[in-house]
């Protein structure tokens, strides 16, 4: 579902539940994977992402555009992941004061990871827009099925699976042509 962009941002700023559900749908997985890069701990990554989202939800912070919101979420998640790493012993303190504002110098490495994860996030959102057949094949291969297994399951030739898969990737890349401002959530 693509949504009016301003409406969504306004909804997020105003803490409308529908907008927050979209926000979760569009960012949660990517942010978890991002934090997991730093922590290598899936459960902790999910906790940190949730803490950050809840803290933003509770704060009166307003965002001027989606870029600002997106960068902010990555930064806040990263900062909190770092703090967590430093203070593994005192986890409780983190829950009590989530750090949103501290500017932590983003090193080259984490910057590259942020770029990478954000692009992956956008691509991931576009999967929903794939034509139905292509999407099914994409989803099956994400779920771990091999080419021959997919062919058997869907009753099509392995050749078709391959061409459809290639076409899907091409389609996803094609979508990247659209203005970055319109990226889906």
């Amino acid at each position: 579902m693509s949504i009016d962009f301003d409406l969504l941002l306004e909804g997020v700023n105003k803490k409308d539940m529908w907008a927050w559900e979209e926000l979760y749908a569009g960012y949660y997985a990517a942010l978890c994977s991002y934090v997991n890069n730093v922590l290598r701990d899936r459960d902790q990554a999910q906790d940190i992402v949730q803490d950050v989202l809840v803290a933003v939800w509770k704060s009166s912070k307003r965002f001027g555009d989606m870029k600002e919101l997106t960068s902010y979420l990555y930064r806040a998640c990263y900062n909190n992941a770092l703090i967590f790493k430093r203070n593994i012993q005192i986890r409780k303190d983190i829950e009590q004061k989530i750090v949103l504002e501290t500017e932590v110098e983003v090193a080259d490495e984490i910057f590259a990871i942020t770029v990478r994860e954000e692009l992956l996030r956008q691509l991931y959102c576009y999967i929903k827009e794939l034509p139905e057949g292509a999407r099914e094949i994409m989803e099956l291969s994400i779920s771990g099925l091999s080419g021959p297994e997919i062919a058997e399951k869907l009753g099509i030739t392995i050749h078709t699976v391959k061409t459809q898969k290639n076409r899907s990737f091409k389609y996803l890349r094609e979508k990247l042509k659209d203005s970055v401002l319109l990226f889906l959530i």
Binding site: W20, E21, Y24, A25, Y28, A29, A30, C32, S33, N36, R42, Q46, V49, Q50, L53, L120, R121, Y124, I142, S143
Partner: peptide, 11 residues
């Protein structure tokens, strides 16, 4: 990996 993070529960 993205697929393994379920946003609904968190939401």
């Amino acid at each position: 990996e993205f697929d393994t993070y379920e946003y609904r529960e968190a939401f």
